[in-house]
C-alpha cells in the first residue's frame, strides 16, 4: 500500500530561518524513521538551498521562501522556492567552487553539497521571477 504525506512551510528570508527550515524538514521526514546519516544529508541539502534563496535569491532583502516536502513510501521530495532575482546561468551556478559573490567568503559549494547528499537535484529559474530547487532522496534504509 502506498503511504503519502505532505507539508508546506513559508517564511521570510531571514538567515535565522535557515536553521528553522532544515529542522522543520528533518522533523517531518523523521516519521519514516530514517538513519541519522540520511537525516543529516537532508538537513544539509535544505540548509544549502534555503541559504541560496536568502543570499542570492533575495540578496539579503526581504521575500518569502516556500519549502514543501512530500513523502511517498521511502521517497522524499523537497522543493525550495523563492520569488527573487533568479539565476542567469544555472549551469555555471552549479559548478563546484563557483560563487557570484566572492566578496562574501562563500565557498561556492552549495549545489555540490545538494547534489552529493541527495539523489536528484533539479533547478528551475527565471531571471527576475525566481528559482525553484527540487530535490529527491530515496531512503535506502527503508525497504
Amino acid at each position: 500500500m502506498q503511504y503519502q504525506n505532505t507539508m508546506k512551510v513559508s517564511f521570510i528570508s531571514k538567515s535565522q530561518n535557515e536553521a528553522f527550515a532544515r529542522v522543520a524538514v528533518a522533523a517531518f521526514v523523521s516519521q519514516l524513521d530514517p538513519t541519522v546519516e540520511e537525516i543529516s544529508d537532508i538537513k544539509t541539502a535544505v540548509s544549502e538551498a534555503v541559504t541560496n534563496a536568502v543570499i542570492h535569491g533575495y540578496e539579503n532583502g526581504e521575500g518569502i521562501i516556500n519549502v514543501s516536502c512530500t513523502l511517498t513510501n521511502n521517497i522524499v521530495d523537497i522543493t525550495i522556492e523563492d520569488k527573487g532575482v533568479g539565476i542567469e546561468d544555472i549551469k555555471k551556478a552549479r559548478e563546484p567552487l563557483y560563487t557570484s559573490k566572492p566578496e562574501l567568503e562563500r565557498s561556492g559549494m552549495g549545489f555540490t553539497v545538494m547534489e552529493t547528499f541527495m539523489d536528484e537535484v533539479e533547478v528551475e529559474s527565471i531571471p527576475g521571477k525566481g528559482t525553484i530547487v527540487r530535490m529527491r532522496k530515496k531512503l535506502n534504509s527503508l525497504k
Binding site: S47, S107, M109
Partner: peptide, 13 residues
C-alpha cells in the same frame, strides 16, 4: 553537530 558549506568559507578565510 552541524555544518554546511558556509563553514567551508569560514575555514578557508
Amino acid at each position: 553537530q552541524f555544518m554546511d558549506s558556509s563553514g567551508i568559507g569560514v575555514i578557508m578565510g
